[in-house]
């Protein structure tokens, strides 16, 4: 410890210079510097794994799986690496507007890409790449209307404020003429994928989600129960690789269409 009471000049100086000298068993500053340097080198090494700058695609949650498959094929055929970020259309659009470095936005509606284009965020006019359909999960296909109208059964859907599929689900609920609608427990996911997850985990009895999330199961909601879910793609005006972005969009709107239809999407009108 610090012998603060020692006043003899020579000993004091010895102690003053001595106590700060670390004992051999101590973790010294040099060791700390070594640890930090080693960690820094490690970071650089790990970082080198993804050397080539990929094409950045922001995908509405309903389209995430499909986009993953298409990206894989596109990558294999054209040698352009792709990274995918997924969230609700509303979240992605506001991120793009605030400067998120996405090259392509695959939205789940027409309004947001068009609004972004009007604000100067699009390189070319947004184009439709798929038409989405809504399904009701957890209901018996014979009397699904009755189940949908039964406020005793809890329901999962995407948040209509940020997710186009949530908006469509809201329209369906309004049309379903739910008795005592205020009583119903509605759980809202941040996006349609999360809504699906809520239902899948058993937290909700029913779910109104995109057919693409569960192409085999569920009751297809009649198309005229809600506004058509026209999914539009946009190439960002700030894209650093517009040629590759255009190539991806071409791939998506032509060769990939068969794959989309197998996954529960329909062709654009």
């Amino acid at each position: 410890m610090v012998p603060g009471t020692n006043t003899h000049p020579v000993t004091s100086e010895l102690i003053y210079n001595g106590w700060m000298r670390p004992r051999s068993s101590d973790l010294t500053w040099t060791t700390l510097v070594r640890i930090v340097t080693a960690a820094a080198l490690l970071c650089v090494t790990i970082d080198g794994v993804g050397a080539q700058q990929p094409l950045r695609i922001a995908v509405a949650a309903n389209f995430r799986d499909a986009a993953g498959h298409i990206a894989e094929r596109f990558q294999r055929e054209q040698g352009i690496p792709i990274t995918i970020s997924s969230a609700s259309t509303g979240v992605l659009a506001s991120q793009l507007q605030r400067g998120a470095p996405f090259d392509v936005l695959l939205a789940a509606d027409r309004q947001r890409p068009n609004a972004l284009a009007e604000a100067g965020h699009a390189l070319v006019e947004p184009t439709c790449y798929a038409l989405g359909r809504l399904v009701l999960l957890g209901a018996n296909s014979a009397d699904w209307r009755a189940e949908l109208a039964d406020s005793e059964r809890s329901l999962a859907m995407a948040n209509p404020r940020s997710a186009p599929y949530g908006q469509a689900a809201l329209a369906v609920l309004e049309r379903a003429d739910v008795a005592d609608a205020g009583k119903r427990r509605v759980v809202m996911g941040a996006n349609v994928q999360q809504a699906f997850q809520f239902w899948h985990s058993g937290a909700a009895d029913l779910a109104l989600v995109a057919r693409s999330l569960s192409p085999e199961a569920g009751v297809l909601i009649p198309a005229d129960w809600h506004e058509p879910i026209e999914q539009y793609a946009l190439i960002s005006a700030a894209s650093t690789r517009p040629q590759q972005a255009k190539a991806f969009l071409d791939y998506l709107t032509k060769p990939a269409q068969a794959l989309l239809q197998a996954r529960g999407y329909e062709a654009c009108p």
Partner: peptide, 22 residues
Amino acid sequence: GGNIPGETQVLSIALYDHVEAM
């Protein structure tokens, strides 16, 4: 961050992303 793999997708976000994708 915006959940961009390789740029802003840190571990906690990657985990969230996995959960969302089930």
